[in-house]
Amino acid sequence: MTNNELIGLKRSIDQVGVEERTARFQTRSIKNAAKIQGLKMALNMIDLTTLEGKDTEGKVRQMCYKAAHLHDALPDLPTVAAVCVYPNYVSTAVDALKGTGIKVASVATAFPSGNSSREIKLADTKIAVDSGADEVDMVISRGEFLSGNFSFVFDEIAAIKEACGKARLKVILETGELSTLDNVRHASDIAILAGADFIKTSTGKISPAATMPVSLVMLEAIRDHYYATGKMVGMKPAGGISKAKLALHYLVMVKETLGDAWLSNEWFRFGASSLANDVLMQLAKQAEGRYQGLDYFSKD
């Protein structure tokens, strides 16, 4: 699409309305059986993530073990949806997760800044896909987006999507750098039109990361696209969701914005590292009736 066509997608978002709506998602009371179901669902939607400069093969293996054995003391626990690592650790993760059904996601395209040439970004993506990644998390070029070069962003996403082949593409908007909800909506629309399988809020390296208002705006972009074309796009809030209660609020938001069809890890994910243990502590609390301490859960 041309830049002018993409500029034409711009629409304004009622920020006050969005904030009021998200505040109401947080007043729902979810107890007992529904809470346990919700917590297990949240666990099953987690992309267990390690994206540190100090990552090692050992760290990745440890996290993969955790992904498959969240807390063996509790029966009937699901696994997480995927693990998310840098491209050079994809083969390690693929090896460690063999037979578990857990997907391997890899960040790519000069994560987290996205400041590099198209060739390098494509090569980065290719390394991840060739090593066996099931999903690729790319970052958009926020600088180009903010300077109004929308067709650059669009073309880049489309090119990466092509390079992904069968792997599903998650497009990280890095909403913390987009300043306004109008920009978030615009970037969401561009990413969806360019072929994103998922849109994702943040890299986790910038504060603020995922917030409920930003996520709601993105969910509404997905909803509008679905109404217009009948095609589903996934959503992944990432960063800053570390408490089980907040995760439940997100699930309520997804259900009330998109409906039950999105309540599976095929269409909704949490990008998080410490969320899993908090959810596990809540599940253990429900099972045992007492508040839990982190000493009794494996490190993530």
């Binding site: 009736g289 007492r290 508040y291 839990q292 301490g293 982190l294 000493d295 009794y296």
Partner: peptide
């Protein structure tokens, strides 16, 4: 009960 059963105490 909760003062004494909390696992993080």
């Amino acid at each position: 009960e909760h003062f004494s059963s909390h696992m993080d105490v």
